[in-house]
Simulated assay, not measured.
Amino acid sequence: MTGIPRGPEDVTPDWLGTALGVDVRAVDVVPIGTGQTGATYRATVTYATAQTALPGSFAIKLPAQDDAVRERVALGYRSEVEFYTDVAEKVAIPVPACFYSDITEDGTDFVLILADMAPAVQGDQIAGCSEQEAALAVEALAGLHAPTWCDPAWTQLAGIAMPKPGDEAAAGGMGEVCKMAAEITTDKLGDSMSAEDRETLSAAMAVVTPWLLTEPQRFAVMHGDYRLDNMLFDPDRKRISVVDWQTVGVGLPARDLTYFTATSLVPEIRSSVERDLVGRYHKALTGHGVTDYDLDTCWRDYQLGAVQAPVLTALGYAFASSTERGDEMILTMLSRGCQAIRDLGTLELITSST
């Protein structure tokens, strides 16, 4: 038995060598980033003999060191391990290669040994992205959606974080949780959030149930939290890798698309380039083999998808501890997301569809 490291101190040469199936002489482990629901480390490896099939460093993902957090996000851990073991090789979205994975039955302990994508750099959620980065992101997203497009087999994934298409009971339950999350979020942020955004947030979270049940016949595997902080860009901004697969779902594909543009582009840029970005996404879908999905329908789905922004943002914030950067990021994402909902007429579209 290889076992699962409890923390970085357990990523020893013996453990890593057993997991990789080679003789490891030494390993140096240092943290990467400041994840709230998990922890990622860079492991630089010295092999006993020269290796041509394995890299010199890896990114190793482990659970949060706080036991309470582990229990709360166990479904997310299951989702991420399931993605790398059962989904990643069947889709075309660029992700780090996975060399090893393991998870306990209750999901509170897991490990992933992934390719180290350095010198790629993480997107800056607060600053927002450029048009070039946005184009990379939406074209990559089609590589996730197209290979899983309307295939009911994907609804059987065990780690789905959001209600499955057409599940009225689950959609109703999620709707109630979202209303609660909206109240908690507005209370926590107080006057930092504008009155207009508070109104939009409340209205959006009040229609989550019918929103989730809209267009149930059109679905694909979704990333769920498709935003800049979960993307790595090569220094030349010609390649992208997508990470953090703890919110995988199955639902209306364009929810991922609008969540990205609404939270990761400043509103002025979004409004000027979103038609082009939707066109790029649609063209990439057809290039991957999706048929019977015209651009007008894609644009309507994009309009509907904007509710994903307050849903994911408020759910993540309402039940988590606050930090200074975290609060700034949430305010930024909510402000951008609420503006997108108003600009796109999303709430009116949901009302007319039910």
Rank of each mutant, 00 (worst) to 15 (best):
D14Q: 14
G17L: 14
T18I: 11
L20K: 03
G21M: 05
G21P: 07
V22M: 04
V22I: 07
A26V: 01
A26E: 15
V27I: 10
D28M: 09
I32N: 05
T34P: 09
T34A: 15
Q36A: 15
T37N: 13
G38I: 00
G38V: 06
A39T: 12
A48F: 11
A48H: 12
T49R: 14
A53Q: 15
P55E: 06
S57H: 11
F58G: 06
F58H: 08
I60H: 02
L62N: 04
L62E: 01
V69Y: 05
V69W: 07
V69P: 02
G76Q: 11
Y77A: 14
E82Q: 12
Y84F: 15
T85D: 13
E89P: 04
E89Y: 08
K90W: 12
A92L: 13
I93E: 00
F99V: 03
S101L: 09
D109V: 07
F110H: 11
V111H: 03
D116P: 04
A118Y: 06
P119N: 13
V121T: 12
V121W: 09
V121D: 11
Q122N: 15
Q122G: 12
A127D: 02
A127K: 01
G128Q: 00
S130G: 14
E131K: 12
E131F: 10
E133S: 13
E133P: 06
E133N: 11
L136R: 00
L136V: 02
E139Y: 04
H145P: 12
H145I: 14
A146Q: 04
